[in-house]
Structures are given as C-alpha cells and as structure tokens.
C-alpha cells in the first residue's frame, strides 16, 4: 500500500496498469487498494500543480498569522474549521509559538486579500488578531521547485 501511495504522490495520473509494471503487484489488487485509500480519505485528492505566473500575473499569496481564542469543549478546532472553509484559504495549520493559526490565503490581487482579512477574518468573534505577510516570490511548493529544477545535463550517452 505505502509503495503505491508513494508512486501516486509523485504522479497522480499514473494508472493501475502502469503501477503494476513498476511494482509487480496485480492490477486488480492495486485498484482495490487505491479505492480503499480514497474511501478512507488516505488519498485526499488528485490535482495538477500549476505555475500560474507563466500565464502572466499569477494570483497573490499571503501568509496570515491568526490569533484566536480557544472555545470550551472544542478548543481551537471549531473556529479553525470555520476559517479553513473559506475558499480563499489554500492551506492552514495550527502552529506552536506566538500565534495559533498559519493560513495561506490566495486572491486575484492585494485588494482581494486585504478585503478577506478586514471584512471577513477579523470580524469573526474568536479572532483576536491577524498579521498578514504577502508572498513576494515563490521558490518551492509541495516539494516542487518553481522555475529552477535541477537538470542532469551533461551525462554522456554512453559510458562503460
């Protein structure tokens, strides 16, 4: 199972017959394992990673630190999920340190993001404060270097 997941993590488009060629497992078995992993939410989604910047102005990204007041019984979870559900929030984590949530927020422009912070995020009761850092340049996302992948150039076509 882990072997299959590692393959899929690198290439979400690979199909069962190709995985079978690589691992020697039966296609049937691979399909079953994948279906189960999808059902159990072990595989969360399949998607393409896109460098929008290549098409002109890409989206604006900000990392927003959020301080929140924990609530009785549910702690941070209820309020965190409430924030995370906004489609502007691309990823979010509860972190240790001076503040509680670290959210990556995406918008078409700076105005979009400031609008989200001032009109939406800050007005939630449990939110005690925010601090917004705009992303100036993206170097690496989800393990992929942006615009700077190493190339194995210069390997001789034959060597003994």
């Amino acid at each position: 199972m882990e072997e299959i997941l590692r393959i899929l993590e690198k290439n979400g488009r690979i199909d069962a017959s190709q995985i079978s060629e690589l691992t020697g497992l039966k296609e049937e078995e691979i399909r079953e394992l994948i279906t189960k992993a999808e059902k159990d939410n072990i595989i969360l989604s399949y998607k393409a990673q896109i460098d929008w910047g290549k098409l002109g102005d890409g989206p604006v990204l900000a990392i927003i630190e959020v301080k929140i007041a924990p609530q009785r019984d549910v702690g941070f979870d209820a309020i965190a999920m409430r924030i995370a559900r906004f489609p502007e929030v691309k990823s979010m984590h509860l972190v240790s340190g001076d503040y509680d949530l670290s959210a990556q927020v995406e918008g078409k422009n700076m105005y979009d993001i400031s609008n989200f912070v001032t009109n939406t995020l800050s007005t939630i009761d449990a939110v005690q404060g925010t601090s917004t850092r705009f992303v100036l340049k993206r170097y690496k996302e989800d393990g992929t270097l942006i615009g700077g992948d190493d190339m194995a150039e210069g390997r001789l076509p034959v060597s003994l």
């Binding site: 190493d150 194995a152 390997r155 001789l156 076509p157 034959v158 060597s159």
Partner: peptide
Amino acid sequence: FFDLIASSDDIISLGVGEPDFI
C-alpha cells in the same frame, strides 16, 4: 559506434554506466 552515438541526438540511451540522479 560511440562516436556515432555522441553525434546523434534524440536517441534514448540505455548505454550509460552511471546514475541518472543528480
């Protein structure tokens, strides 16, 4: 033969003796 390989591009080479990883 090796010179031939070196001078043709667009070949798929299984002729190497080293890792393709950096």
